[in-house]
């Protein structure tokens, strides 16, 4: 693993790291450029869709926001974000090109996030429900008023 310069030898990565026994297949320039271009376009398009949904939610908030529609749109944005994360990790970071054993040592621990997110969001939700039940002052001072008021008051009615 010596890194001293010897101009008579071309030290390839395999000579530098002899423990790496199977070498990654580096595609030719044309295939590589095509793949990067495709992924860039994909990431950009997903981001644009996300932004469009973001604007959609913004305009929905101007009127009476339909609760489940907003929730549904936010769910779609979350799934699109996971798709973006998948492309960044597997194409840009080449995790998809590593051998399966190694991939699993990264991906399997990340499965903890499934529990992590569900447990802690449920915790927050439960805290809110309990406070609303037992702390009426909290409920009265923080609960958004029903959306009927803004339309009754056109001077300030641009409530978003």
């Amino acid at each position: 693993m010596s890194s001293h310069y010897d101009p008579t030898k071309d030290i390839s990565p395999s000579a530098a790291y002899p423990e790496v026994t199977v070498h990654h297949h580096h595609s030719d320039d044309a295939t590589f450029k095509k793949r990067v271009k495709k992924t860039t376009i994909l990431l950009s398009v997903i981001t644009i869709i996300e932004l469009a949904i973001g604007f959609g939610i913004y305009f929905l908030h101007k009127g009476e926001p339909p609760y489940f529609l907003v929730l549904f749109l936010k769910g779609i944005v979350c799934i699109l974000t996971l798709a973006k994360a998948y492309y960044i990790v597997s194409v840009f970071m080449h995790l998809g090109d590593e051998i399966r054993n190694f991939m699993m040592t990264i991906v399997v621990p990340l499965a903890l996030f499934i529990w992590f997110i569900i447990a802690f969001l449920a915790d927050g939700q439960s805290y809110k429900d309990l406070r609303n039940k037992y702390d009426k002052h909290f409920e009265e001072t923080t609960m958004p008023a029903p959306h009927a008021t803004p339309s009754a008051e056109p001077a300030k009615g641009e409530g978003h």
């Binding site: 992590f116 997110i117 969001l121 915790d123 927050g124 939700q125 406070r131 409920e139």
Partner: peptide, 11 residues
Amino acid sequence: ISYGTTRFSQN
């Protein structure tokens, strides 16, 4: 996630 927890605990 802690941000999410706090956000879920607010009306």
